[in-house]
Simulated scan of single mutants.
Amino acid sequence: MNIREHYEQLEEKILSPLATKSKYTKGRLKFEEKCNIRTEFQRDRDRIIHSKAFRRLKHKTQVFIAPEGDHYRTRLTHTLEVAQIARTISRAIGLNEDLTEAIALGHDLGHTPFGHTGENVLNKIASCGFKHYEQSLRVVDFLEKGTGLNLTYEVRNGILCHSSNLEAETNEGKVVKLADKIAYINHDIDDAIRAGIITIDDLPKECIKVLGKGHSERINKMITAVIEHAIKFGVVALVGEIGQATWELRDFMFKNVYIGSKAKQEEEKAIKMIQALYEYYYNNPNKMPTEFINRIEEWGKERVVCDFIAGMTDRYAINEFINIYIPLSWGKIY
């Protein structure tokens, strides 16, 4: 028996009936021999961590565009907080932590520069449409390394279904979807207070009465509510008094932070920048890297331009915009 087979036997013994066992994965898009050391879901987690798309998340907007200060969340720190919350829930209810972590680490790989602002621009301007959760799957299936990461079905399904009205087929995927919301509701409150957009006293009083004033207190109550419901009913959900307070707090954040607040004061600039980059590369596809040019025949120009722009970090997009549209000083030309 090798190390992987030993872990597979452990999963059979210690994981809940609610869990997805790595031994029974539906497999990969392309057949691969199994690793002697790692389970299939462990391999997926490692592939995501070592990907360039994962590293780029550190320079992509979470909520605040070009914030001044080292403590604001980026798309990478958001991803790590989601993974931590999701693993805590999964461990407590006996789910597969490796699958949970792989989904969590890969769920936002398809996000554009400037967060949901960039996503909305590409979705409006391209007839093929653009959704970050679909792009995340596209990254792991096709774009990363030029051929994709060839992940297991369960990880791919969890990545695709972490947002919108889609529902993951595994309980681990459902945990990540909830962990994503728990993470961003709470860390965005933290960032918004730091930025002076809201104060703790602005938060809905009934929600705070139920969830608590403190960052860790709110997260703990939300996580505990998910765990207790799953243990009692065998269903991954955030419901009851804690759930209602959570979704009301989320509504408050949309009305007071995500839409029309100071957090969005640079949004119009970002919109125009993404529009300009899209127009330029659509009209000049030969200016994209060769690997993208070579995909146009298979995927179409709109999709490939979206792929190129979505892969940019905030600062790369800004630099591209400057290089294309801003006149250089005489000394930099000659």
Rank of each mutant, 00 (worst) to 15 (best):
K60H: 12
K60C: 07
T61R: 03
T61D: 00
Q62I: 02
I65S: 07
I65A: 08
I65E: 07
A66W: 05
P67R: 10
E68Q: 11
G69C: 09
H71F: 14
H71M: 13
Y72N: 07
T74E: 08
R75F: 01
T77L: 05
H78V: 00
T79A: 10
L80F: 12
L80D: 01
V82Y: 09
A83C: 09
A86H: 05
R87F: 02
T88P: 03
T88D: 13
S90C: 07
S90R: 04
R91Q: 15
R91M: 14
R91W: 11
I93K: 10
G94R: 08
L95Q: 05
L95A: 05
L95V: 08
E97R: 13
D98L: 03
T100P: 10
E101M: 06
I103E: 07
I103P: 05
A104G: 08
L105S: 09
H107E: 00
L109C: 11
H111Q: 09
T112M: 15
T112R: 08
T112C: 12
F114M: 03
G115Y: 10
G115H: 07
G115Q: 07
G115T: 09
G115R: 04
G115W: 04
T117N: 15
G118C: 06
G118D: 00
G118K: 02
N120P: 06
N120Q: 13
N120R: 11
V121L: 02
L122S: 07
L122F: 05
N123E: 10
N123W: 05
A126W: 04
A126R: 11
C128Y: 03
C128D: 12
G129Q: 15
G129P: 07
F130Q: 09
F130C: 12
F130P: 05
K131N: 09
Y133G: 08
S136K: 03
S136V: 06
S136I: 07
S136D: 03
L137G: 12
R138H: 14
R138F: 14
V139G: 00
V140T: 14
F142N: 13
L143A: 02
E144P: 08
E144V: 04
E144D: 09
G146S: 14
T147S: 14
T147K: 15
G148W: 00
L149K: 03
L151K: 02
Y153T: 09
V155C: 06
R156Q: 14
R156S: 14
N157F: 00
G158A: 01
H162R: 01
S163I: 13
L166Y: 11
L166I: 06
E167S: 00
